[in-house]
Design a protein around this nucleic acid. Sequence first.
DNA 1: AATGTAATCTAAAACGTTTTAGACGTCAAG
DNA 2: CTTGACGTCTAAAACGTTTTAGATTACATT
Lengths: 344, 344
Amino acid sequence: MPVTLKDISQRVGKSVPTVSRALAGFEDISPQTRELVQRVAAEMGYEPNITARNLQKQRTDTLALILPSANTLRFSDPFFSEFLSGIVEYIAQFGYDLNISTTDSEDELETYLRHLRSRRFDGFIVVRTKLQDARIDLLREHGVPFVAFGQTEANNDFHLVDEDGRYGVRQVVDHLVELGHTRLACIAEPTNLTKSHHRVQGFIDGLTAHNLPVDPNLIIETNFRQRSGRQAAKLLLELPEPPTALVACNDLLALGAMGAVQDHGLTVGKDISITGFDDILLSEYAHPPLTTVHQPASDMGSKVAEMLLNLIDGKPNEEKQVIIKPSLIIRQSTSAPSKGGEAP
Amino acid sequence: MPVTLKDISQRVGKSVPTVSRALAGFEDISPQTRELVQRVAAEMGYEPNITARNLQKQRTDTLALILPSANTLRFSDPFFSEFLSGIVEYIAQFGYDLNISTTDSEDELETYLRHLRSRRFDGFIVVRTKLQDARIDLLREHGVPFVAFGQTEANNDFHLVDEDGRYGVRQVVDHLVELGHTRLACIAEPTNLTKSHHRVQGFIDGLTAHNLPVDPNLIIETNFRQRSGRQAAKLLLELPEPPTALVACNDLLALGAMGAVQDHGLTVGKDISITGFDDILLSEYAHPPLTTVHQPASDMGSKVAEMLLNLIDGKPNEEKQVIIKPSLIIRQSTSAPSKGGEAP
DNA sequence: AATGTAATCTAAAACGTTTTAGACGTCAAG
DNA sequence: CTTGACGTCTAAAACGTTTTAGATTACATT
C-alpha cells in the first residue's frame, strides 16, 4: 500500500538508486530528472520507510531513556517531567525521537545490554546516577554515546550534566542559620544516589561552616515521596529536643513533612521552618509557599540532549561536564525560630 | 562489532536461516543443533538487530504518541504524566516501546501523515481530542490502528477511552448546591477540546437540574494553567455580584483561582468555595486542600494501551469505547456560602 | 530395488533503502 | 582519430533478519 522508491522508479522510468539520489539532491542527477522525481514523489505521497533507511544507515535517529520502573517510578515527579520535556523539545528540532522504556531494578543491566546490542538507539540518556553506577561502566565499555544526568562517586570521565546540589543545600543552610536556627535536621533521599549524597554533603558543609555540631540523629535517610517525608518528620518532632528547621532534600519530602508538622499542631513557617529542593510547581502553591531551591529542569534536559547529539555526530562539546548552580527561592515556610533556638 | 546471525552461522557451521530458526525454536531443527546454536549465541552475546527484524516483519513494536508542542505542552501536567506512565508500564510487558514526539499545531496533520507513511509505528495514541478532530479522520482513512483518549463531537466510531467529565462536574455542582450555593461560576479550558466541552456541559446540566439560571457571564473560557485560572477568578470576583463558588475545570486552574481569591483578601473554603478536576498530587497539599474530581490517570493510560495492542494484534476488544466515571473528592476548599447566598 | 515419508537443513528471495563502483554517451583537446 | 574528462545514470552489493520453497539424507515400506 505505501509508496516505495520502486513505485516511483517505475513511474518515472529510472532506476531505484537514481530516484533515491534525486530525492536526496545529489549532484550527479540532472536537474530535469531531479525535478521530475521530486514532483512524482510528492504526488504519490512518498515517505521513506524509516526502518529500511535505518538498517542501511546503521543509525536510528532515536535516543533511549530507560527508567527504573514501578516502585520508585520517577515519571510522575514534576521535576522529572520538566526535564523530559526539555529533552523532547530539543531533539525534535533535529528529527530525533525519544524512546522511553522501563525496567525492574534487578534486570537493569540486562535491559541496557539488550538495548545497546539491539542497535536500536543512537544514544542513551542515563538518569538518576548512583555513586557506583554499573550502567555507566557498561555503556562506557561498549563505547556507546551517552550522557548522564548526574555524577558518580569517582572517575566521572564521561559526558554529564548535573545540578550543584551541594551548593544548593548549602544556600539553604546558610539562609536558615542566618535566620537564627541552630538545630537543623535533614530529610534525605536514598544516599546511594549521587544527587542525594551531594545534597546531604551540602547540609553537612553548611553546619560545619557555621560551627554547628553534625548530629547523625538529625539526618534521616528515607525515600522519595511525601509519605516518607511525613514519617521522617514525625520521628524528628518526637525527639526530646526537636529541630527548629527541617531541610528536606526534595519538595515532595518537604510537603510530607509539612503534613506531619501540621498533625503535631504546629505552624510551618512560624513554629518550625521547612525547606525543599527542586521548586516544582507545587511548592509555590503549598501552604505556606515553600522555601526551596530552584533548578532549570527543562534547560537541563535540553543541555543533556544537546551534548548527546553532538556526541553522536562526532561534534565536540564545549564542556564535557556541565554543572548548573541552582538558586535559593525564599518563600514563607522559613522564618526565625520562635523559641528555644539557641543563638550561636 | 556487534554479533550477527552470520557470525553465529560461521561459528557453528550452519546456514544463517538455520541459526535464525534454531533461535526462534522452530520444529524443523534438530534438538542438538538448536541447543548448539543457542549456546553459542548466548556465549557470543548475540542480540537481534531490531531494525533488520522490523524491516522484514513489517512491524516495529513501537507506539507513537504525538504531543502538541511548546505553547500548551501537556507534558508537565501531572495528570498527563500519570497517564503516560500507565501506558509505558503496560506496554513494557509486551515488549513494546513508546515513542514520544512533538509537533507544532500548524503542522500537526503533516506530522501525523509523515509518521504514518514512514511505517515506523505499529499504532498511534491520540490525546486531547477536539470536537472536530482531523487527526482522527486521517488515521481512520489510512486504516492505521489507533486509540484515542477522549471523544469527538459526533461519529465516535473508533476505539477510545474517556473520562465522564460531564458526570464528574455534575457531581461537583450537586455538592456545591447541597452546601447552599446558588451562584456558581465555571472556569473552563478551551472548549474546542472535547474534554473541556463535556465538563462545561456537566456544569450546565447541574445548574439546570437544580433550577438555577445559567448565566453566560459566569462561564469563562480560558487556558490550561494557573495563570489563566488566576485571571479568570479575578474577573469573576470583580463582578458586581460575584459568585460564591468557582468550579474550575482542572486543578491547575483551581490553584490559580485560589491565588486570586487570596489576593482579594478572602479565605478559600470559607468566604468562597473552589473546586478542581483531576486530583493531581498538588490538590491534596494545596491550601486549603482542594475539593476535586479524581480520575485514575494511570489506569486510563493502561486501558488505552491495552486496547491498542489488541487492535494491532487483531484481537477483539471487549468494548470499543471505555468511559470511566470519576469520583468526587471532598476536601476543605468547599463549604456553605458564608453570606449573601440566596437559598433556593 | 523402487517408493514414500519424515527429519533436517539451506538457497534464494524478500523487506526498502543507500553506497559503491562502474557503465555509457558526449564533448573537447590533442 | 584517439584520449581523457565530464555528466548522467544504473547494476550490484550491502544493511541483518525472516520466509518460502525445495534440497538432501536416512529410513521404512512395498
